[in-house]
Nucleic acid binder design. Structure first.
Lengths: 396, 396
DNA sequence: GCCTCTTTGTCCTGGGAGTGGAGAAAGTTG
DNA sequence: CAACTTTCTCCACTCCCAGGACAAAGAGGC
């Protein structure tokens, strides 16, 4: 099938496409209620969208008390690819134009193997999804990488945990390989976009999305838009000092948040606790698996292991301390906690909340929900699809 | 004189007004180079602005190689009032429509005397400026207060250092008294606006403006727009924890930045040093004045007093630590340091820079200037004038 | 089944806004 | 003084679009 290459010709069409994306099939009349256009003008724009093929007719709507309206919807053959490259695994998903996930694969993968190896795997995962009949091709792809990105060009810049990716033309390369438009962003920003589109942050204009995985990052949304900073490194909170003269960090400083609490740090702490005999549960798991991860700590904590609960509480407290500072500074309307470590659940959340509500001023915390992300591992890929759809559904 | 009450009728006119405000008198042809309008359309819009009286003819421009063009400029009789209410003093200034300061008064005043007493003084200062022939009336006023503001309504909310101001309808009241439109904002935001309009931040889209005065606050500019947060308390960094288990703070916590370094904290430290005999210079000054302020510390430091230099270095270091966190998070293109304590000058700046450059990652600090504000005490009043002009030069 | 009312969709016309050309006015340069 | 530039005004033509009229399609009451 020939892929759609059309783009909206003007802001009105872009608006309509986004309404159809976010609200699903809609009648012309309903669309008319949401945009400020005369019936004639609306009809013209919808007709033009039908001509481009981006939008198709979709039968009759239910009556609202009179003549039934003709529904329109985004072309059901449109497919977006959402890719979320983490430090230790890759998520690839296919969505339709309404950003519903049709298929989703996760595979372990070390990002340090470099862009060539990673993309080979991503492409084979995409091919597998295509082969399973979910898509005949892709109309666009969004991709998230675990490091700062020069956004307009779609190129990673000086990513600490991705040696070999610095300056690699991700957007360009993937666009060639997939034969469709591609947008690249930081994985944390995509998680924020995902939670904004389909998760807990749907109605909030200004919020923070803290992702605790192998590292720690923070997506910043200002006025509904992702804020990326001057060089694309905004939200890089893993290296904020959480403990004066604390543990040495890979970045060369001491006491960075990431050195004290993150997937990697937690695993280290768990191994130490097991070896020192502070936790029978962890020792047993270390014995069986040969290694420990945050998931082991979560399981042990769920089983009531005191040492693990302490580890989580302490980490949550450190994280909460940093978030408290950010809340004072940024005064968000919502804080979302996500990433691999969310398996630690409410113990973690409680520790974070305690610290934030204690340290920040009432005016900032008064009506501030601090919640876990709703979407889990799909937040990233949904955000990726959202990123490319925002791009494609904007006037060229 | 009857005041101007006209507002631009559309975005084009608003654009033109702002060009004339920021660029001074301009010919039609020059304006045409800067906006994307046909000659006819431009002429129509300029004519309409002339009709409203907001804009007046201003003679002939220099030739650019052909027929000389007719200049237009903002009505030279337009007057804005800029008011900057600090914790311990008030600045009031008159500007023309191009936001040039025509007259500026500063008077000591304790904000804790409450809104009624403060406004009485502000009005008398405004009257004095008017009486000196600088203005026959005001077309708009901007006012900054040292605490969070619910911006749309222009009402302070839960301001810690301004008991008695909570919920006081500042905008409404002042608008009545002055008989002109009024906008209210946090003083730090206005400083940021001022530095953006006429100071060091003219060309930067995303920057932070840290004001160290009696308290500590931070103006946040995102994409050229001041960011105020969900409840108007964004930038309230004075109560971020800088020292774990540090000094008790008025807010109830310990170790807040403001408790360790601010005009007030510095004065306290200075008195203590004088009494403990650690600084002969300060002791002498305490003897003569009966009290010490940040200015005394600055003077003593300039004279080479080691204790004072240490105080400044330590405070700068604490501040730098907090700013380092903000830089990692926000990735600004510029950090401006301003407020009363800037008298401490380069000793302070050096301490801050050292800490930020050491603690934040290279990608964020690589090209990050950290500089003192250019405008000093006029930043606030210029920002105030800018605030109201932005409001009045927008379509109604 | 029929009549009336409501909603939706299409067509058409009148008005208004804006583009861009023609040409006059005002200056510069050699 | 002639040729070229720039600015400004005027005007005709185009394009867009709002909103009314009307047709189509359905709901509901009797």
């Amino acid at each position: 099938m020939r892929r759609m290459t059309a783009r909206p010709a003007n802001a009105h069409q872009a608006r309509l496409l986004k309404l159809l994306r976010d609200g699903g099939p809609n009648s012309r009349a309903q669309l008319g209620d949401q945009v400020d256009l005369s019936r004639s003008k609306l009809a013209v724009e919808v007709d033009r969208l039908l001509e481009t093929g981006l939008v198709v007719a979709d039968g009759l709507a239910a009556s609202r008390g009179g003549r039934r309206s003709h529904n329109v919807r985004l072309n059901p053959h449109l497919r977006f690819l959402g890719v979320d490259i983490g430090a230790t695994s890759v998520d690839v998903a296919v969505t339709n134009a309404e950003l519903e996930i049709l298929g989703h694969i996760n595979q372990p993968m070390d990002v340090r193997e470099g862009p060539v190896a990673v993309f080979e795997q991503v492409l084979s995962m995409a091919a597998k999804l295509r082969a399973s009949g979910l898509a005949e091709g892709f109309d666009g792809a969004g991709i998230g990488v675990p490091g700062p990105v020069r956004f307009p060009e779609g190129v990673p810049v000086a990513p600490p945990i991705m040696p070999g990716w610095d300056g690699f033309p991700v957007r360009e390369a993937l666009s060639q390989d997939l034969g469709c438009p591609v947008m690249v962003d930081n994985d944390v920003n995509l998680m924020a976009l995902g939670e904004q589109h389909a998760g807990v942050a749907r109605t909030v204009a200004d919020f923070l999305c803290v992702k605790i995985g192998t590292g720690i990052g923070c997506g910043i949304v200002v006025g509904g838009q992702v804020y990326r900073g001057t060089t694309g490194s905004a939200g890089d909170i893993g290296h904020i000092q959480a403990v004066p003269d604390g543990r040495p960090c890979a970045c060369g400083n001491r006491g960075c948040l990431e050195a004290h609490f993150s997937g990697a740090a937690l695993a280290r702490d768990a191994v130490e606790a097991a070896q020192q005999g502070r936790s029978a549960e962890l020792a047993a798991r270390l014995e069986t698996h040969g290694a420990l991860t945050a998931a082991d700590v979560a399981a042990a904590a769920a089983a009531g292991d005191a040492t693990c609960l302490d580890l989580i509480r302490e980490g949550g407290s450190r994280t909460g301390q940093v978030i408290a500072g950010l809340v004072s500074f940024f005064n968000p309307g919502l804080v979302v906690i996500g990433g691999g470590v969310t398996g630690l659940g409410h113990t973690l959340l409680a520790a974070i909340r305690t610290q934030v509500y204690r340290q920040s001023l009432p005016l900032a915390t008064g009506n501030l929900p601090i919640v876990l992300g709703e979407l889990g591992p799909t937040a990233g890929v949904i955000g990726a699809a959202r990123l490319i759809s925002d791009h494609l559904f904007s006037p060229a």
